[in-house]
């Protein structure tokens, strides 16, 4: 290492920044595994009740807005791209571009949440709410509230993850502005990126399963 290279901070129980990065990355992947297990519970339950009540699921299904779901899918896919680009830019020490890409990611996430807001408020207006709150009358199949409970619990949990992701992106945006990251030290950006990709990936499973599969 040349003396010109700036001092790189790393926790003292690691040997180097790279060592710390490696540990952080493994930790992040393990965390993503827990996310997969969490949503696995939802998918297993959803699959079971889909099998038990095919007719009810079919009927309930018509009340979901596929176009809004598809729009959100596209928005999230774009956000994954911009997130990846941000990491690529910071690896090339292009802080300005990396920050712009983070802002674009945030914008996409915000669009996602706004679309979600319209979807939810429309349903709430119709009395389609989870569980006991379900008030809509024009349904034939029994226990139809069960489907919408799944809908709200699954998309709600996912939405919560999007919000947490937005907070995390804001946090690294702020740190990037402070000059914390460069081509040798960009762990936090990469880890938030990994998290953002899993949030995206879960939606990629969630959208066809809840909105499209009959």
């Amino acid at each position: 290492m040349s003396g010109a290279h700036e001092h790189l901070d790393h926790a003292h129980h690691f040997e180097s920044v790279e060592h710390e990065f490696e540990a952080g990355k493994l930790g992040m992947w393990l965390f993503l595994v827990t996310e997969v297990m969490l949503f696995g519970v939802f998918f297993a339950g959803y699959g079971l009740f889909h099998y038990l009540y095919p007719e009810m699921f079919k009927e309930a299904h018509h009340h979901l807005d596929k176009r809004m779901g598809a729009l959100n899918t596209v928005v999230l896919l774009i956000s994954s791209l911009t997130m990846a680009l941000s990491i690529a830019y910071i690896q090339r020490d292009n802080v300005k571009r990396a920050k712009q890409m983070l802002l674009l990611t945030l914008l996409c996430a915000a669009i996602f949440m706004v679309v979600k807001y319209f979807e939810y408020s429309h349903k709430i207006h119709l009395g389609i709410l989870p569980g006991d709150l379900f008030k809509a009358a024009d349904f034939q199949a029994p226990n139809i509230a069960l489907f919408f409970s799944f809908y709200f619990v699954m998309t709600g949990t996912h939405g919560l993850h999007v919000l947490i992701g937005m907070a995390a992106i804001l946090w690294i945006y702020w740190r990037m502005g402070r000059g914390d990251f460069n081509s040798r030290k960009f762990g936090a950006v990469e880890f938030v990126g990994l998290y953002w990709h899993i949030v995206d990936l879960i939606w990629i499973f969630l959208f066809p399963l809840v909105y499209l599969v009959v």
């Binding site: 038990l52 009540y53 095919p54 007719e55 009810m56 034939q140 199949a141 029994p142 226990n143």
Partner: peptide, 8 residues
Amino acid sequence: LMDPMKKV
């Protein structure tokens, strides 16, 4: 009897 639509 409970869920007639389920298995027709």
